[in-house]
Every structure is written in C-alpha cells, then in structure tokens.
C-alpha cells in the first residue's frame, strides 16, 4: 500500500491554521455545549466531533501526501489508538476540565511519537511532529465528542458506564478512525483537491453522528436520539451533495455509460 503520493507537501485551499482553529476550538466548544445543555442537545458533541474529524482528515492529508510507506489507514489507526488512551485519561483525572486535559495529553503523546518517528526511525518527514500532535488531538476530540453524544455528558463515570462497558467505544474507535482516514484514502491521486477531501470528511463524520445518535437512544431516550439522527442526516445530505458537486467539477467526465476514451482523445 505504498501508493500514498510521491513526496512533496500537499497544496491548496484553506491554510492549515484555519482548519486547525476550526477543529480545536469548534471541537472543544461542541463538547462543552453538549455537556452542559440538557441531554436533548447532546448533538452539539457530535458537531464538535465533526469539526475534529475534519481537522484530523486535513492533517492526515498533509502528512500522508509525503508517502508513509504503509498506506493511509495506518495513520488513522494510530490517531485513534493515541486518542483513546488520552481521552479516557483526561476524563478520569480532569473533572470539568477533562477534554482539555485529554487534549494536552494527546498532544504530548503525539509529539513524542512524532519525534521518535523522525529521530529514531528516521522517516524524514518534515511536518511529522506537528502532524502527529494534530492527529492525536483530533482523534481525542472525536472520541470525546461522540462519547458525549452517547452518554450525554463527559463525566468519567457516565462515559465508562454508558460508552465503554457495553463496547460502544469500539464503535466510536472504528467510525471515528474511518472518518479521519477515509477521506484522503478515498481521494488519493495526483489530482486530489482539499475541499473535495474535506467534504468527504464532513459526510463521514455525519454518519458517525447518526450511528452514535442511534446508540444514544439506550440511555437518553428516543426523543434526543431522534434529534441526533435528524441532525446527522441533514449534515450527511448536505455533505454528500457538496461532495457530488465537487466530483462533477473535478472529474474528467461523469457519464451514465459509454466507451473508454479512444487513443486520439487521450493525446
């Protein structure tokens, strides 16, 4: 799976700082809104998770365009691996500051792994340290955000009881990880565009919100679950239409059926 680009940084579209700000601030704000509002508004946690997943997808896009040698999925998996450790740690010691503690813990773990990857293993990717910090942070916020959707708050006890004990954490792990790694993996190629990749990130994150919303019916009741699902569906439809628009803009042609282009057309 070494098809991940051929060196050189990814270009175009929104600068990384903008996306980073959206991801970090939007993610934390969403999580806190989801925590303090009554359970019916827990979808704010999902909105925070969407911001975080978009941020993670952008960071993956920047680092994976250097070519990792192992394919894009590995970095999504390490993101969520670090995220899950940091998220549960932060919630367990941080109390009301839990998400922020988690975020800082994730940044530390990410920085250490990034430095190790460059200095000890010698991958030689210039933005590896920064990207690992970003990816770990985004993974952490995505996990906490989706946990808030299911549990209604980020109290450690609630999260452990309603999210971890019944194994939904595995669901969050895989669907958050797919949200972060799938957009770039799906749009891999020499003509990859940032806005198209990020629109897939929005769409996949909305699916995560729908599924987490469905799971939240166990604890929060049907009304808030329905609201979660409705918000998720609306964002999904928006994201998918946006994505299809970008496809029509970027693709060579979108046709019902037909022959491959002939040799003359390829000149």
């Amino acid at each position: 799976m070494s098809a991940g680009g051929s060196g050189g940084g990814a270009k175009g579209g929104y600068p990384p700082q903008t996306i980073m700000a959206i991801g970090a601030i939007g993610g934390l704000a969403g999580i806190y809104l989801g925590h303090f509002m009554p359970p019916a508004f827990s979808f704010f946690g999902g909105l925070g998770a969407i911001c975080a997943i978009v941020w993670g997808a952008d960071a993956v896009r920047r680092v994976a365009s250097y070519g990792l040698g192992t394919g894009v999925p590995s970095i999504g998996m390490i993101s969520l691996g670090m995220g899950i450790v940091a998220a549960l740690f932060g919630l367990s010691v941080g109390g009301i500051a839990g998400p922020i503690v988690s975020f800082i813990a994730a940044a530390i773990i990410g920085a250490v792994i990034g430095v190790l990857a460059n200095k000890v293993i010698g991958m030689g990717i210039p933005i590896m340290e920064q990207a690992m910090v970003e990816i770990a942070g985004a993974g952490t916020l995505a996990i906490i955000g989706l946990s808030v959707v299911i549990a209604g708050s980020f109290n450690y006890g609630d999260v452990v009881q309603y999210v971890v004990a019944n194994g939904y954490i595995a669901l969050i792990f895989i669907i958050g990880g797919m949200g972060i790694l799938h957009p770039f993996n799906a749009n891999l190629g020499p003509d990859e565009k940032q806005d198209r990749t990020l629109s897939v990130a929005v769409e996949k994150a909305a699916i995560a919100l729908i599924i987490a919303g469905f799971a939240s019916s166990l604890h929060e009741g049907l009304m808030s679950a329905g609201l979660n699902i409705a918000v998720g569906l609306a964002i999904w439809a928006f994201g998918f239409m946006k994505y299809y628009g970008f496809i029509k803009r970027d693709a060579h042609a979108v046709v019902g059926t037909g022959l491959l282009p002939s040799a003359e057309e390829l000149q």
Partner: peptide, 29 residues
C-alpha cells in the same frame, strides 16, 4: 458487557495499534 473488561480491552487495543504502527513505519511497510 462489563466495565472493567471493556475499558481494559479498549486500552489494550489502543496500545496495540500504537505499537503496531511504529514498527511498520520502521520497516517501510
């Protein structure tokens, strides 16, 4: 399921993924 089993298994999975990705970068895939 069960709280402790769930959290221990999830941490084990998280640590496993971190430790599986690091060497795979080392061997270049």
């Amino acid at each position: 399921g069960h709280e402790l089993v769930g959290i221990a298994a999830m941490f084990a999975i998280g640590i496993f993924f971190v430790n599986a990705v690091i060497p795979s970068y080392n061997i270049g895939g």
